[in-house]
Amino acid sequence: MTTNETLTDHDRIEAVLGALSDAWNDNDADAYGALFTEDASYVTFFGQVSRGRTAIVDGHRWLFARMPGSRMTHGATADREIRFLTSDTAVVVGQGPGTIVPGRESATDRISTVGFVVVRTDAGWRFAHFQNTRLQAPPA
């Protein structure tokens, strides 16, 4: 097991991506929102934009109440890239199945490309921006 002293920033970003999935899977809107900066922006699967941690928490509290037991896979791991823009800012882009809702075995019909801007804060790495876009074939 890697100790905190030997974790790289890449490892720490991987950990915050995992914590995001864990908070979703616990249906814990407060823990989910705590992983975002106070002024974060959040673009949903449906294109709605939440601005600020409070709006992100409120939106997820509403969502978790309507989808209890939904599951998020860890961090869109397919083709995931963590690219550092500066020592304190990274962009993460990856693909993965959408959230699995109760009564369904998988979400392979809901594959999304997700993007994050992750920044180093006094509390550790936090998400300053998130966007979730359903993967679709281009129009003919």
Rank of each mutant, 00 (worst) to 15 (best):
D22V: 06
D22F: 05
A23I: 09
A23K: 10
W24I: 02
W24V: 04
W24P: 00
W24F: 14
N25G: 08
N25E: 08
N25Y: 11
N25A: 09
N27D: 14
D28F: 13
A29H: 09
A29Y: 08
A29V: 10
A29W: 08
A29P: 08
D30T: 14
D30M: 06
D30F: 07
D30L: 11
A31C: 07
A31T: 04
Y32I: 02
Y32L: 15
G33N: 10
G33T: 12
G33D: 11
G33Y: 07
A34N: 09
L35F: 07
D39G: 01
A40Q: 01
A40R: 01
S41Y: 00
F45G: 00
F45V: 02
F45Q: 02
F45C: 00
G47F: 06
Q48A: 14
Q48Y: 08
Q48L: 11
V49H: 05
S50L: 12
S50F: 15
S50E: 04
R51L: 06
G52S: 10
T54Q: 15
A55C: 01
A55M: 03
A55W: 01
A55E: 11
I56D: 00
V57K: 05
V57H: 01
D58N: 15
G59F: 02
G59T: 06
H60Q: 04
H60M: 03
R61E: 13
R61S: 09
W62K: 12
W62R: 14
A65Y: 03
A65F: 04
R66Q: 14
M67E: 14
G69K: 12
S70W: 03
S70A: 15
R71E: 03
R71Y: 09
R71T: 03
T73I: 04
T73Q: 09
H74A: 07
H74R: 15
A76W: 09
A76P: 04
A76L: 05
T77F: 12
T77I: 11
A78S: 11
D79M: 06
D79E: 14
D79R: 09
E81G: 06
E81T: 15
I82M: 10
I82D: 13
I82T: 13
R83Y: 14
L85D: 13
L85W: 09
T86W: 10
S87Y: 05
D88V: 10
T89C: 13
A90Q: 08
A90W: 07
V92N: 03
V93L: 12
V93W: 10
G96L: 01
G96D: 01
P97E: 13
G98I: 04
T99N: 05
